[in-house]
Design a binder for these strands. Structure first.
Length: 317
RNA sequence: GGACAGGUGGGUGAGUGGUUAAUACCAGCAGACUGUAAAUCUGCCGCGCAAUCGCGCUACGAAGGUUCGAAUCCUUCCCUGUCCA
């Protein structure tokens, strides 16, 4: 029996820090190559969170299909695993129509979960997690000590202060009955059938920071305060995950009278800048990525991206 | 003109004789990341060298002085703020 090799399908990913112009570039690419946009931003998944997440307004989408936007309510949670599953379904659907998926977003962890997959481990267990968190709070250090006993390899890689990651490692061990580091060795369920082309936007740092500062001011003008007020009025809990994100968190501080507006904005700008830096750090580790030093809105960047992609798509056809 | 208060590393701001290249925070830089990731966490951050424990130099408005030793005490000068004229 001769093996039939099915050629890989194209998949374009537009990555980069917030404010680098991912959405704009993705739109250009989709328009040029018969593409459809697939969101890869952990917060643009949420319905009602538009201004603070800089979601592309429907009117500016040029009729191009956008997937995985507004699919979650504020009280819902989407883990990297959840995201990867949903996104893979969408990918297949788009490819099935002979169109090209253009993944755009700044959530590096989701990108990795989508493309490279996660290890086969147990899902989250809220009760267990709370329990572990409480123990750590009562006696700082216990989690790391416990992990050192059950899974020395993982404990060596996780800092004693990094409670979030300690909890996950312990949770895995307790739920699976096997050390996480051992489960890792079995590999991850990476995405098959695609040869992704990754573009990372990397605008000059000072310009990005300036733009980010301006954008925060712009969000205020666009009515982020009203957006948050409306969300609260419509019953969204102040503790819901999206309201704890950058932009919303600070707006809430102001609305609760805990901080003058000017301070809240300054905080928002600071957090945004820091976030952009962290994103860049993440993407630097992304394998086989094509870096473009400019904004996705720059003519030159757009044309060099399109040029690279012409070759890429031809090779795959 | 007089009376106070104060001038500290890119910024805010501790420190009032040695253990201080100088707390902390901000800014900046770098990194980690396998199911809450816009989360969580780590390192660096005067200069030069060694690039591992280290070594040398320059620093707390300026110039002098006291002292074994000063960002810290004294003198003069410069500057800033508040108050009285």
């Amino acid at each position: 029996m001769p093996t039939v090799t099915v050629p890989d399908k194209p998949l374009i990913a537009v990555l980069g820090p917030t404010g680098s112009g991912k959405s704009a570039l993705a739109l250009e690419i989709a328009a040029r190559f018969d593409g459809e946009i697939v969101n890869c931003d952990s917060l643009q998944l949420y319905r009602g969170f538009d201004i603070g997440t800089a979601k592309t307004p429907t009117a500016e989408r040029r009729g191009i299909p956008h997937h995985l936007f507004d699919i979650l309510e504020a009280d819902e949670i989407c883990t990297a695993g959840d995201y990867a599953r949903m996104a893979r379904d969408v990918l297949r659907e788009i490819s099935g129509r002979n169109r090209i998926p253009v993944v755009a977003g700044g959530t590096g962890f989701y990108v990795r979960a989508l493309l490279e997959g996660l290890f086969e481990g147990p899902a989250r267990d809220p009760v267990l997690r709370n329990n572990l968190a409480e123990r750590e709070q009562r006696r700082p250090g216990v989690l790391h000590r416990a992990l050192s006993r059950f899974d020395p390899a993982a404990a060596g890689r996780i800092h004693p202060n990094d409670t979030n990651k300690l909890i996950r490692a312990l949770e895995v061990y307790l739920a699976a009955g096997e050390p996480m580091s051992q489960l890792f060795e079995r590999g991850r369920d990476s995405l098959s059938g695609y040869t992704p082309f990754k573009i990372v936007l990397d605008p000059p740092r000072p310009e990005l920071q300036y733009k980010l500062n301006q954008r925060c001011l712009g969000m205020l003008e666009a009515g982020i305060i009203q957006e948050v007020s409306w969300l609260l009025v419509s019953g969204v809990s102040g503790e819901s995950k999206p309201l704890e994100s950058i932009g919303y968190k600070e707006t809430l501080l102001f609305l609760n009278g805990e901080m003058p507006l000017a301070d809240a904005v300054a905080l928002m700008q600071r957090d945004t800048r820091r976030y952009a830096k962290r994103q860049l750090t993440w993407f630097r580790r992304e394998k086989d990525a094509h870096w473009l030093s400019g904004f996705g809105t720059d003519e030159a960047i757009v044309s060099s991206a399109l040029n690279m992609l012409v070759k890429y798509t031809q090779n795959l056809k």
